[in-house]
Write a protein that binds this DNA or RNA. Sequence first.
DNA 1: ACATTGATGCTCT
DNA 2: GAGCATCAATGTG
Length: 215
Amino acid sequence: MIDAPDRMPLAREFFDRPVLEVAPDLLGRTLVRRTPDGPIEVRLTEVEAYAGEADPGSHAYRGRTQRNASMFGPPGHAYVYFIYGMWFSLNLVCGPEGTASGVLLRGAEVTKGADLARERRPKARKDRELAQGPARLATALDIDRTLNGIDICAGPEAPLSVLFGTPVPASRIRSGPRTGVGGEGAAHPWRFWADGDPTVSPYRAHVPRHRGKQE
DNA sequence: ACATTGATGCTCT
DNA sequence: GAGCATCAATGTG
């Protein structure tokens, strides 16, 4: 049985391009997470681009560290990081090895394996909330730090793959400032989403948190 | 519907 | 020690 055209995996060349080309081009694509219990598939609806060492909003801004090492690796690999003491986020590494760009996956619609996703997201009241937000997406897809650095172009058995899917046409893509990114990084409209899709997460502007004594 | 805030621990300075 | 590419519960309308 031959795969339908929309089930063809995206090759490494897809990711070996400038991140601002790759990010909007990922919208509508199918992300496959293969778990021991079976596959979970989502249709990507919201992403953010992080543009290498020159981007003040990026984890790579201050150069290579132990945490961000996989961002500096070859394209078509995963960068998974732990945040707020509780959550994971999944990025797809773009651009040539030695550079450090990536696309944060922020929102998606679960299209297959919804029963598995619901088990992992028992607090989701509606199916559209299963993967609405980066940490929710990672939780629904059973993503953790063991997937950091893995090759997502490694073939039909890989834990993660991206399939062709049905790309969102450019006329339906919107862009704006990235969520939770402040400073000079806030100026760039590097968040991309599918207009009107209910699985796009609510925008939250960056709020500087001052802790400790105040007044 | 929207605003506010606690939870929780890792990473880098 | 400060800050974090967040979520969910709580409060108010």
